[in-house]
């Protein structure tokens, strides 16, 4: 479904309206096309109906009053975009959506910061694969004697007693870790979302 633009008698009103609608588009550009259109149409409808219900006074003053009551798009749409992004992320399993949803939901509590850290781990594994290709000898899962030393890049691999465990299996293990972490994070997000809804 399409919506028409609102017609104004004063050019100044049209400029203010166009600016506001552009800001709505910008504030929602991380959402799917359907959700973007939905938000745009709803705000357009609100402005149109409000204009029709308030005819007394100058057009530009009425419009400015309506937009002021609606609030700045960036502020007002923040929770809406965060919610919709989370819905999208848990439906699609697309890493870009999940990452964006996490950033948008940062302010919604400590649990999302934990999710974010888990996600950083995931990116860490991706980074290590490239690091292993570039610098095979210094990247790996290092043990000193029987104790775990580090997973990553080490310049001190020649120290006595240090050995690398995975060898050629390093990249496959990292790939497997990425998949496991990714599925885990997305399922946890889904679980968290269902808890939120039950509250």
């Amino acid at each position: 479904m399409k919506t028409a633009n609102i017609n104004f008698s004063e050019p100044a009103s049209k400029r203010v309206y166009d600016d506001y609608m552009t800001r709505i588009k910008k504030a929602t550009n991380s959402l799917s096309k359907q959700n973007q259109d939905d938000v745009y149409m709803e705000f357009n409808s609100h402005i149109f109906e409000a204009l029709n219900h308030n005819k007394e006074g100058k057009e530009i003053d009425i419009l400015l009053d309506i937009l002021e009551k609606l609030g700045t798009p960036e502020e007002v749409l923040k929770p809406l975009v965060a919610d919709k992004k989370l819905e999208q992320a848990t439906q699609t399993f697309n890493p870009v959506h999940v990452f964006r949803a996490l950033i948008l939901n940062f302010t919604n509590g400590i649990s999302y910061i934990i999710f974010f850290i888990l996600y950083l781990f995931l990116f860490g594994f991706v980074f290590l694969i490239f690091a292993k290709i570039i610098n095979p000898s210094e990247v790996g899962l290092f043990y000193k004697g029987t104790d775990f030393l580090l997973l990553g890049i080490s310049g001190n691999i020649n120290l006595i007693g240090t050995r690398e465990l995975l060898g050629n299996w390093f990249i496959p293990v990292m790939l497997l870790s990425i998949v496991v972490f990714y599925v885990l994070i997305t399922l946890l997000l889904k679980f968290k979302k269902s808890i939120n809804q039950k509250k």
């Binding site: 479904m1 919506t3 028409a4 609102i6 938000v39 149409m41 709803e42 705000f43 357009n44 409808s45 609100h46 149109f48 009551k69 609606l70 609030g71 502020e75 007002v76 749409l77 929770p79 809406l80 919610d83 919709k84 819905e87 809804q197």
Partner: peptide, 29 residues
């Protein structure tokens, strides 16, 4: 006023409320 729309979206995701677009003669549904 702006806060009503995020609230309606939440109510929709919680399946308490549903919505439908209805075309209008004005061209603005």
């Amino acid at each position: 006023e702006g806060t009503l729309y995020p609230l309606m979206n939440r109510l929709k995701t919680e399946n308490l409320v549903e919505s439908k677009w209805v075309e209008q003669e004005t061209g603005i549904p």
